[in-house]
Simulated assay, not measured.
Amino acid sequence: MKISRVTILTLGVADLDKATTFYHAVLGTPPNIADGITFIQLPGTWLALYPFEKLAEDISPDVPVTRSGFNGVTIAHNAHNKNDVVEILSRAEAAGARIVKAPQETFWGGFSGYFSDLDGYYWEVAWGPMFEFTENGEMKFKEEA
């Protein structure tokens, strides 16, 4: 049996060029642009950016094209340590994000903060003592000693 995984997370964006510049600044990974879609290759799961209306149209002409408020989804960027959380949130703010929750200790023993990107998507930037990263950057639970 093959393992299922999420391979690409696509965000519908208002301005593809601005979103591409924003995510390059925040994530530090050079984007690849092909056929009007931006792909940002990350360990495990890629991020794709596509014009909002075109994404809705690709799903179905019957999908309502609306945007407002919190839709119940957040995206997480897990960091290697607390300082990385602060640095990533600072880069996001410098690139135009709105800091929604300043970095702070969490109830679950970690450290995190939230930003809202140019299109209103909410990102948590977090560090957790129960996580570690493989050589190729994939996150996993720490093995018990």
Rank of each mutant, 00 (worst) to 15 (best):
L89Q: 04
V63L: 12
E87R: 05
V86M: 00
A79H: 02
T38I: 04
E138A: 09
F115P: 02
L55P: 05
P64F: 01
E87T: 11
K54N: 06
W123N: 00
N81R: 06
Y122G: 04
K18E: 05
G36Y: 03
A145C: 11
F22L: 00
F115I: 04
R91P: 01
L47W: 13
K2E: 09
A102L: 10
T66E: 10
D58E: 12
G137P: 06
G36H: 05
T7E: 14
F52A: 12
F107G: 10
P103I: 07
L9W: 10
F52W: 15
Y23Q: 03
A25G: 12
N71C: 05
R91I: 02
N71R: 08
F131A: 03
G69F: 03
S60R: 04
V26I: 01
W46P: 01
R98L: 09
T106S: 14
P30L: 02
G12W: 05
S112N: 13
Y122I: 03
E105V: 14
S68H: 14
F111D: 00
M139R: 13
K142T: 03
T134C: 11
F141D: 09
A97M: 13
V73D: 04
K54E: 06
E144L: 14
T106F: 04
V13M: 03
S68P: 01
A92H: 09
G137K: 08
A97H: 12
A95D: 10
E135A: 13
E93R: 13
G113S: 09
L27M: 04
G120L: 04
I59G: 07
D17L: 09
N78E: 09
D84R: 07
R67Q: 15
L27E: 05
I88N: 04
F107E: 13
F115W: 02
F131W: 10
A92W: 05
A97Q: 07
N32R: 10
G72T: 02
N32L: 06
I59C: 06
T134E: 11
Y114I: 02
D84Q: 06
N32I: 04
D117P: 08
L89K: 01
E57K: 14
F39V: 03
Q41R: 14
G110F: 12
I8W: 10
F107I: 11
F52H: 15
N81H: 12
T74I: 11
G36T: 00
T45Q: 09
A34G: 05
V13F: 08
R98T: 15
